[in-house]
Design a protein around this nucleic acid. Structure first.
Lengths: 359, 359
DNA sequence: GCAGAAATTTGAATCGATCCAACAAAAATG
DNA sequence: CATTTTTGTTGGATCGATTCAAATTTCTGC
């Protein structure tokens, strides 16, 4: 009785089918994976037995071990899982990754975790052939963790200068210059910068020291781009307030409060992400400050949402979807080489920027 | 020489470490999975050897086979992968699923495929502990395919009446009645229905025969709800045009063309999804037909986007996130039982509905 | 210094498949 | 009818780990 019950609970294995059908496990395996090389009569018999015993088909867990390849790519971030579905930048990126995966039939495994410890575990135990890393905050830690798996991986939004890891990013300096020039040409001379983090966990006005010691060189490059270009228009960049935020609502609003509490509020804001730019538009509008009549804003990223809001967001657009596609392809066609690609960016002028107020 | 080169290429296994460190595989395994039971001295030695040989840590492929549990849930649909990141309903649902997975540290594997054959393969080979199925079109096929894996699964947006599968859905009849009553009470008497599919691949005006033979009972129930309630207000429901679409732009627009080509155009539209409702608003506005002054629209689903567009969409809101959470929990805490849950819905009145024109 | 308890370590068995060299049977060829 | 080909089947080896009962070592207390 007991053995009968146990038999019920235990899932049926290929070997059980083979035994019941009176063939070797080799043949039974072939029935499922290469049916054409098995004699029709045998094939049908085995299939019938499998059907009758309620066999679920070859367990991918077993196959995997033998085959070695999972046929899935992991996408990891330090944010919670919902980030992939909420954040417009992430979503656009995932769109590109999806496309590449759809084309080759690969799957996508989302990896993230509530805390650092779990993140480490999740990366160690993810069943994937490689990783795409969304390096937002804590990007360097994510890279370190992933490196240990010794699987191919590519860092997105690179940020930090580690030439030994594959990465795809954009020309931050060029993009920043485009943004700055656009505003300068509209006559703006008083600026503020809503900056991404220079190092983990920081927030508040950034000093030159902080900028020099930047862990995230992407942030540093954007700032450098802004300043270089503005300097060419005779702007004293040392006077420009640079507020470091975490690319979310709370700290961005805090930054705006701080910036507009100053004596000479800016007529133009350079935001290092569209997310922050959109929050800024919202904040300003709620305070009766008109965009772009009173204050102009340029974002950075080119997320689809920027086209839909009112006013439409002027921004430096990255080829987000294309970056996603390429990242996925890098993992899928991995050849062992380290690749670093820098994509071009483009100024998209919409309604959030306008001529500076006279006077 | 050759053997040396081969040694380079072949990844290092736990057994290699054990041999090099002069311990058994059992001990080597313990060093990584339960370090506390290994004597400190031995532990450090093994770790040092592992480090020095460039061991990537225990391969999850091997562990998996032994452990049996993947600690990930698969989310499957017949749409392309990008659906998960584009579609507002799917995104809201994924938000709920993410939450539940984050809470337990489980991963999410996205499963989909370009064609039916690949879909079958992807479902067969997905490394997951269970599935959540997005049953849009082709839902019944998706369920059949998944059933073969003999893993726990739950169907979302149930639709069809198969009492043997776990599912979470909403009270379609009640929701539809709420929508219909709202419009009727506003004085509307001329209606049109933008319907979801009654069976796969259909599009165009639905006849009573089609409705009776519905494969997707969810669609049928919503229609029944609309009609029941309207009948109570004395509306002749046999005159109401019901256009079946595929819940995307093209066929929805075709439906609107067809509906407004009729002699007596409706003053109110009952849309079975917010997606279609939003497309309808867009289509009408583009034609100079004012919403809600000329035509009122009620959607169904309650996606976040409905609150943001202009005019805000009046809709029947499902507790989407909560459904996602529950679905994930069903898989994570699976106990072998078949569960069918029906969630309540709620009428959310925004600006897309207004009093019927006099006359 | 020794028995007995406690802490470590061992190594075979197992998870569920696929692969492949060797063999057997059937078919084709001379 | 003997010989070569072709076709189909077999069963052991392997993928990379974990587990657990048994063996061994170390520690306690006297």
């Amino acid at each position: 009785m007991a053995s009968l019950l146990e038999g019920q609970a235990r899932p049926i294995r290929l070997a059980d089918i083979a035994r019941a059908a009176g063939v070797s496990h080799g043949t039974a395996s072939n029935v499922f994976s290469r049916p054409e090389i098995v004699r029709a009569e045998v094939r049908e018999r085995v299939k019938a037995v499998a059907e009758q015993m309620g066999y679920a088909g070859p367990d991918p867990k077993g196959r995997l071990l033998r085959a070695g390849k999972v046929n899935a790519i992991g996408v990891a971030t330090t944010e919670p899982l919902s980030y992939f579905f909420d954040d417009p930048f992430a979503r656009a990126m995932m769109g590109g990754i999806s496309e590449a995966c759809d084309a080759t039939g690969a799957g996508i495994a989302l990896v993230s975790a509530a805390n650092q410890e779990k993140l480490a575990w999740n990366i160690q135990s993810a069943l994937v052939d490689g990783f795409i890393l969304f390096c937002i905050e804590g990007g360097s830690r994510l890279v370190d963790l992933t490196r240990e798996r010794r699987l191919p991986f590519v860092a997105l939004e690179l940020g930090f200068q580690d030439e030994t890891v594959s990465a795809i990013g954009v020309d931050n300096v060029a993009g920043a210059r485009l943004a700055a020039r656009h505003l300068a040409e509209l006559g703006h001379r008083r600026f503020a910068v809503l900056s991404l983090a220079f190092a983990d966990g920081r927030t508040g006005f950034a000093t030159p020291d902080i900028v020099r010691g930047a862990l995230y060189t992407g942030t540093r490059d954007r700032l450098a781009g802004y300043f270089e270009e503005l300097a060419r228009f005779g702007v004293d960049t040392t006077k420009i307030p640079v507020y470091e935020t975490e690319n979310e609502e709370k700290s961005t609003r805090a930054g705006l409060e701080a910036i507009f509490a100053k004596d000479e509020p800016p007529t133009a804001i350079l935001a290092m992400s569209d997310r922050m730019a959109l929050i800024a538009i919202d904040w300003l509008t709620a305070r009766g400050i008109k965009v772009p009549q009173d204050v102009s804003i340029v974002g950075f990223d080119g997320v689809p949402d920027g086209a839909l809001c009112t006013p439409g967001l002027t921004t430096i657009a990255q080829p987000i979807t294309e970056i996603g596609r390429r990242a996925a392809r890098m993992i899928l066609d991995h050849d062992g080489a380290v690749r670093r690609e820098t994509m071009g960016v483009e100024l998209i002028v919409r309604a959030s920027t306008g001529p500076a107020r006279k006077g």
